[in-house]
Simulated scan of single mutants.
Amino acid sequence: MKVRVSYGTAIAMGLVRGRMMVKPTTAYLMTHHNGRCRNNCAFCPQARESRADLRRLSRVTWPSFEVDEVVEALPSGRFARICLQTVDYPGLVDDVFELLEAFQPLGIPVSLSITPVERRILEEFKSRNVDYIGVGLDVASERLYPLIKDSLYSWEDMWRFTRDVVEVFGEGRAFVHLIIGLGETDREAVETIWRAYSTGAEVSLFAFTPVKGTRLENRKPPDVLRYRRIQVAHHLIREGFSPDDFEFEGDDLVGFGMGVEELAPLIPPGTFATYGCPGCNRPYYNERPSKEPYNFPRSPGRGYVMEVLSTLLGSRGSH
């Protein structure tokens, strides 16, 4: 049996030679499947109708290794956890159980991103060292979801699955993945983030990354400042704010009901870093190392927070 390993993780484990700008603190792995996914997400290299390289997910390459080789090398990476990504295909659940059984002797907690499964399967995952589940909602707009996802699972199927995960694993143990830049409005993004937290889930934000061979290969990534604005809204919602506390012009998010001086103490530097399961830093998943990251693998300094907030709100005075 084989498993895919993200390139940075493979370097950290000594499976390949290469340079790392930032060491991954989580081991990012993916199920190995010779075919494409049953779903047809417009942004994904693994999609049913994609022409992209199957070794890719977002902009990252995922070479394959024998499972025994990976299990032997994992301790050398000193990872906080394993994050197992999955491609949807017949027999997936059986493969996941086989991988979890191989990982279990290591005693490393496992986060699992998977399409909806029955509650009894979730309970079995929980008994095998899985403590967080990633929910690939991806599209932060019910309006766009069927157009972009083209999935076996509807918008409401994904929310039902989210609720099941929360009930089986507990509040804060479901991470709803949202990709910013797929055509959603700011209002849709904010309301979807709020719905996730209202359900007892958490949210992990990604930036859209065009990949050659996918249906959205010609779409541009989101503007960094727009992404920062959504990150600020995400943090505030996590702290108890609601969309009604924010300021919109049409569907554009333009303010947070306060000026820079009031807002700054509420926004820690980690707001602009990768937010996910404990130990996740996901370095340069959405951009090249030469560019400003959408999600910093380490928290930027306090000065960066002030710079961003001043740019977003400085010209708006107290609004």
Rank of each mutant, 00 (worst) to 15 (best):
E307T: 14
L15R: 04
G303A: 02
P90V: 12
S315A: 07
E262Q: 09
L74G: 01
E118V: 10
S64H: 08
I230Y: 06
F161G: 04
V3R: 07
G317A: 07
R128K: 11
E249Y: 14
G276A: 12
I114Y: 01
A201C: 07
I133W: 06
Q104K: 15
F97V: 05
G8Y: 06
N218W: 10
K149R: 15
P210M: 11
D251W: 09
G183P: 08
D157V: 02
R219M: 12
M13H: 04
Y285W: 15
D138S: 12
F169Q: 03
L84I: 03
V5F: 00
E118W: 00
S290R: 15
Q231F: 05
S154V: 02
T9M: 02
D252E: 14
S151H: 10
M21H: 14
V168Y: 06
L178C: 00
V166Y: 00
L100M: 10
V260F: 03
C277L: 09
A73S: 10
F79T: 05
N34T: 14
I148L: 15
E72D: 12
M13N: 06
T209I: 08
V305W: 01
A80P: 01
P116S: 04
G301Y: 09
M158G: 05
D138Y: 02
R17K: 14
V203N: 00
G77Y: 02
V22I: 13
G314I: 00
R173Y: 08
P278Y: 06
A10E: 01
E167T: 13
